[in-house]
Design a protein around this nucleic acid. Structure first.
Ligand SMILES: [Mn+2]
Ligand SMILES: [Mn+2]
Ligand SMILES: [Mn+2]
Ligand SMILES: [Mn+2]
Lengths: 168, 168
DNA sequence: CCACATAGTTAGACGTGGCTAAGTCTTGAT
DNA sequence: ATCAAGACTTAGCCACGTCTAACTATGTGG
């Protein structure tokens, strides 16, 4: 149970991982590379609420003229005080404007974020539909997947959507 | 700013959403369906740590004979006390066994979960690779996406992987 | 056999994001 | 003009998941 006993001859704690990687099976990312992946997931989680809220707020405003907390709560599937707290964070982060007892509006930054998220959401949904999934499954899975799709992967999704729409 | 003013004639609060859906643009899930999607994402987030940990623990045991907290911490990209707390939750939930100052082992339930997660992880990675992504991007995005892929979507991914491997 | 490096634990802080209960504001109906 | 219903806020609770600082156990090597 001591840090060098499994690696053999190394005296330097720095090269433990390199040693372990060559000593074992071929397919495994370096520990640090792996850690970056998990870090990226944690980062995505921190922006997820903001992204989903501004997207929904934008849609509510377009479709019904205003975004009321009660409607946000219903569509997010949470209680009103939860929405209140999250809206306070969005305001703190400069994504929305609001006055007490009034509906919510997007700032410029909020609009910009909403535009990006809506487009990304649309691409992910269409990609999943192209795989043959029903709309409800596509929508539900996209709601989670969208936050974990890198630019490269989103581009790949977009290519696949175009490829299956154009020549079809 | 009152709950019925936009829907027209309804007196019954229950059918607000149906009314709104027909009144506006065609493509938008019902509020409740949408809420289920967000709920599914929140549920996935609650099991995510457990899934990634048991998967990593299984791999460490297979590759080096034991799973030490310090190695988990390095690969997860977090500090040791974070691992300690998460392992305590895993133990509470019956996924791992451990004694103080010793390494970690999976229970039967932990093994079963790890098996499922590893297989799912592999399918998602291979699917992304099949889209033409580099291995590092595929691994990193898969680390997040894997937790938001329903059974149906996973099956679709698997079909796509087989289709691109077999005839190629 | 003992010291020291390393691993592991504990304590305590913090922010997020959920909830309930209870209060306050607004507004349409009477 | 009032009032009741619904929307919004506030207060306070909780669990999770991250961190730092400080302490304790382990086991190897001198
Ligand atoms: Mn989403
Ligand atoms: Mn979305
Ligand atoms: Mn993962
Ligand atoms: Mn994984």
């Amino acid at each position: 149970m001591e840090q060098e006993s499994r690696d053999g001859s190394s005296d330097d704690p720095q090269d433990r991982d390199a040693q372990r990687d060559v000593a074992c099976e071929p397919e495994s990312p370096a520990a640090q590379t792996r850690a970056e992946g998990f870090q990226a997931v944690r980062d995505a989680h921190r922006s997820e609420i903001a992204e989903d809220y501004v997207e929904l707020i934008q849609e509510l405003i377009e479709r019904s003229g205003e975004a009321r907390p009660v409607d946000i709560a219903e569509r997010m599937g949470v209680r009103q005080p939860t929405v209140a707290k999250n809206l306070a964070r969005l305001q703190r982060d400069g994504l929305i404007r609001r006055e007490r007892y009034r509906s919510v509006f997007l700032t410029g930054a909020g609009q910009a974020l909403a535009d990006v998220c809506r487009e990304r959401h649309k691409i992910v949904v269409e990609f999943l539909l192209g795989l043959g999934l029903d709309r409800e499954t596509a929508e539900q899975d996209a709601e989670g997947i969208e936050h974990h799709v890198s630019d490269r992967t989103l581009a790949a999704f977009e290519r696949a959507v175009k490829a299956s729409e154009r020549p079809g």
